[in-house]
Design a protein around this nucleic acid. Structure first.
Length: 271
DNA sequence: CTTTGCACCTGTTGGC
DNA sequence: TGCCAACAGGTGCAAA
């Protein structure tokens, strides 16, 4: 479910409700996520205080003085804040309860997500050690992308979705960015010109930025919602629009599989 | 080293 | 209505 804008929206949604608070109790109903949840998570977190809620790639980082609670939402995960404790539903696997009874509830039907405790410094964590640049940082610029892809024989779409190059660009936004930049997803990355990279960087940043802005309107949905909200409907220009008319030139949108992921593009507008 | 494809799960959708 | 296949927004890891 979540790509970077959704994770960032989640961060902004939960942060004001848990920052500065101490963990009181952690209830793990199902520890079988991508990796088993720490068997003594309750003891590990007990009375630790939340300093900040950060994000790196699609990982949420709940920072305490003693270490990080790392949360990944996988494909179907979500977090909500509850001020009154309702009955957990089927896929509500973990409850984080704070001193003032604020409840942070983790739900993940497919269980591709992860909840980890790490007390070292992040750059040493194996999941973070080889992550590429943040797409919305100044490090992600035309020079960086042009250099990074110069020896990549894979398609540009596969490269964009590679965490070691740039993080946070998933299937939806890679499709959308390539359409906006008028570049075919099938194009070998090392065939892109410098000015292609310029448009692509601008498109990725523009699309992610606008999606985060759109998420801002749903921030209230993180508190006391029924669990179906918290994410926001975006209007997509190519993603999921197989055979529908291109919004620029009206020719039918094509669909192919690249790297086992559905890819959508306009054969006329994208070259 | 680069690149590919599998695997992990459950829920939803659409065709018959 | 039921059944079944296909598909879903992620990503670590083994293998080529």
């Amino acid at each position: 479910m979540p790509e970077l804008p959704e994770v960032e929206t989640t961060r902004r949604g939960i942060q004001p409700h848990i920052i500065g608070k101490h963990f009181k109790q952690i209830i793990v109903r199902n520890n079988r996520l991508r990796w088993p949840v720490h068997p003594y998570l309750n003891d590990v977190l007990y009375q630790k205080q939340v300093d900040t809620v950060d994000r790196r790639a699609k990982y949420l980082l709940i920072h305490t003085k003693q270490g990080y609670l790392i949360i990944h939402l996988g494909m179907s995960g979500s977090l909500r804040v509850l001020t009154t404790h309702t009955q957990p539903e089927k896929h509500d696997h973990i409850d984080f309860i704070f001193e003032d009874n604020t409840l942070l509830r983790y739900r993940d039907p497919r269980r591709f997500g992860a909840v980890l405790w790490y007390s070292g410094s992040l750059e040493h964590h194996p999941l973070f050690a080889s992550l590429g640049v943040e797409p919305l940082s100044e490090d992600f610029n035309t020079d960086y992308l042009y250099t990074a892809i110069s020896k990549q024989k894979r398609t540009i779409k596969n490269v964009l979705m590679d965490n070691r190059i740039v993080v946070g660009v998933g299937n939806i936004y890679s499709n959308e960015s390539l359409f906006q930049a008028a570049i075919l997803p099938t194009k070998p990355a090392n065939q892109l010109q410098y000015h292609d990279c310029e448009r692509l960087v601008a498109s990725i940043q523009d699309i992610l930025q606008r999606a985060i802005l759109a998420g801002g309107s749903s921030l209230k949905d993180f508190v006391n919602s029924d669990g179906n909200t918290g994410y926001f409907q975006q209007h997509y220009t190519v993603y999921g629009r197989y055979n529908q008319p291109c919004l620029k030139c009206s020719s039918p949108i094509k669909k192919i599989i690249l790297g086992q992921r559905s890819s959508f593009y306009c054969p006329i507008c994208q070259q």
